[in-house]
Amino acid sequence: MTAVTTTPPPRLPVRDKAEARERAWGGVSPMLTRLAAERATGVLVRERGTLHLAEGRVVHAESPAAPGLGTLLTAHGTLDADTWRQAADEAAEPPGAGLLLVGRGRLTRGALELCHLETLYDAAYFALAPSSTPGRFRYTSPGRSGAVRAVPVAALEHETLRRRDLLHRIWPDPATDEAPLLRADTVALPALTARQRAVLHLVDGVRTAPEIARAMGRPAFHTLVDVRRLAAAGVLVRGALKPAEAARIETTDPDITLLKRLRDALESL
């Protein structure tokens, strides 16, 4: 037997970690970091969502991809839809409506705080996603309704990066995050959790992950976690894209087309 020995490859140049962290600091949104430093109050509008700031801390976040506070509170019978709608009409923003309901004894403070934090981090995950257009910030006067909980920008950025990393570790292909989902033809279904079965039940070739999240009354990121796990297990695949999105993704670069065909062929093995 002959042992094949090769010289080890030269060590890759590694950046100083502390310096890299410093540099990555502006990675999520340099504008947000600056606004936090100057303790700004106002609304940051980004391509995929908005963040509401009060004295440099995030008090509320919204994204079309993430279900709002009302959806979460009404989906599991904590509140009925009418009570929520009424409060939402009276208050300027969802957190204000939540506080109103706490004041009336319809909602417990703990339940509101937890739901608020869940929706805030959930919406911020999408709002802080890499975007193709610059964000805009509008300074406003401090809100009247008060905040449920204010989150430091650093904590929010840290959590957003951790979430991106978590999804990447589960299944590195983001194709299923926004496209309509289809069940794959699998011979044997692997053992699934109750939540995964619930997600799979709503997969119909039309709904996207955020739409499934809304239908279930769960945070969108949590649904993405389940969807990526299902994709990793080969139970789910991306369905046909809606026309507008398909046009954006279509490419004529021969290398990319070849790679895509290769990928599809490998996946269908």
Partner: peptide
């Protein structure tokens, strides 16, 4: 802790 996302609330 929220155990789907692993986030400490």
């Amino acid at each position: 802790v929220d155990y789907t996302s692993g986030m400490a609330l």
